[in-house]
């Protein structure tokens, strides 16, 4: 291996410091310039323990996601115009 190649290998082995902070900053910029995204953690409601599999499948259930999306729209409309969403 040539000296130059060794220097290059040593240089590339050095990691980007503060990777976590870089990721946080990048997320903030993506949120500001791209489409903002929120992540909500939902715990399985008590009394439905026998439906565990069904509950877990909701994460990928397209119809359920659309319903959540509609709920967000209703909520934002309420925030904007003061019109109470239908329950």
């Amino acid at each position: 291996m040539t000296s130059l190649a060794r220097i290059k290998k040593w240089f590339e082995s050095r990691k980007l410091k503060s990777e976590e902070r870089y990721d946080e900053e990048k997320k903030e910029f993506e949120m500001a310039m791209g489409e903002p995204v929120i992540q909500v953690k939902i715990t399985m409601p008590k009394g439905f323990e026998d439906q565990r599999t069904h509950f877990l499948n909701l994460e990928k259930d397209q119809q359920f996601l659309e319903e959540v999306n509609d709920l967000v729209k209703k909520r934002l409309t309420y925030e904007k115009r003061g019109v109470k969403p239908e329950s």
Partner: peptide, 11 residues
């Protein structure tokens, strides 16, 4: 640099 790197990558 961290701040600008994040801005540049995103844009």
């Amino acid at each position: 640099m961290l701040l600008m790197a994040a801005a540049i990558v995103t844009i």
